[in-house]
């Protein structure tokens, strides 16, 4: 059980003092664990470094000290092929759905690109894409649209299902619904829950909204003044 978790071990992030700025500590000695099939909520008001922590866990940024363990191996000591596996298995979903797709690529293109990356043969792209659209519940027309022609809620669904194509074990959800309307927020949260029960995915849910965190998480922590207080 221990070996398949994604664990953050005493992570700290400080920005070095530069020529014009003084150094700043974003968070210090933060440790938590995400288990598959469970959700760990990360709460805190804006500017507390929640998103930075999320990016560190997803491997997009490096922590100053401490490290992220994936299947027992620290991220910094991974070999190249292990790192590629980690890239696939730990994904991140961002706050702003309008930003999640390249404005100059049609949705269909953006999706088949991911399929090509996974090594799916070209002939099977359309069937795979259709399969994916059924989970999102969107009509086929969206594939020939540009991201700017689709509403935020739909884009967020597409962003999530594009991530799911990679079959990730863990997803870092960086404020997945705070840019959306209440009704769409409800849709996305339900979709996330469905995915979790179906695929046993582990989530790190970052949000400033306590109700969303309580609704979704099995356990959660509050990030305040760079310290993480774990509740439950």
């Amino acid at each position: 059980m221990f070996s398949i978790s994604l664990r953050a071990d005493r992570l700290s992030k400080t920005y070095e003092a530069g020529l014009l700025s003084t150094g700043k500590c974003i968070f210090r000695e933060v440790s938590f664990e995400i288990r598959s099939g469970k959700t760990f909520g990360l709460m805190g008001s804006s500017g507390e470094g929640k998103s930075t922590l999320g990016r560190v866990v997803a491997g997009l940024e490096k922590a100053t000290t401490g490290s992220v363990y994936y299947k027992g191996t620290p991220l910094t000591l991974m070999k190249k092929n292990e790192k590629i596996a980690f890239r696939r298995k730990v994904q991140i979903m961002f706050q702003d759905p309008t930003d999640a797709f390249n404005p100059r690529k049609k949705i269909g293109h953006a999706i088949s690109e991911v399929l090509a990356l996974l090594g799916v043969p070209e002939a099977r792209h359309s069937s795979k894409t259709e399969e994916m659209l059924i989970t999102t519940g969107l009509p086929k027309e969206v594939l020939s649209r540009y991201p700017s022609q689709i509403s935020g809620g739909q884009l967020q669904r597409l962003a999530l299902s594009r991530i799911l194509l990679l079959d990730p074990e863990y997803i870092v959800l960086d404020e997945p619904t705070s840019a959306l309307d209440v009704s769409v927020q409800a849709q996305i949260l339900h979709m996330l829950k469905e995915v979790q029960t179906e695929r046993n995915t582990g989530y790190l849910l970052i949000s400033h909204d306590e109700i969303v965190i309580r609704f979704m998480s099995d356990s959660y922590g509050v990030l305040e003044n760079g310290q993480l207080k774990i509740i439950e």
Binding site: A58, G59, L60, I84, R87, R88, V90, Q91, I92, M93, F94, Q95, D96, D99, A100, F101, N102, K105, E113, V114, L117, A159, I163, L166
Partner: peptide, 22 residues
């Protein structure tokens, strides 16, 4: 820093691919 570039990096696209298409 745009979301789509970050998520492309996270999905493991090559730098060349991101630079040329994104």
């Amino acid at each position: 820093e745009a979301g789509y570039v970050k998520s492309a990096r996270c999905m493991g696209f090559s730098s060349w691919h991101i630079m040329s298409t994104d």
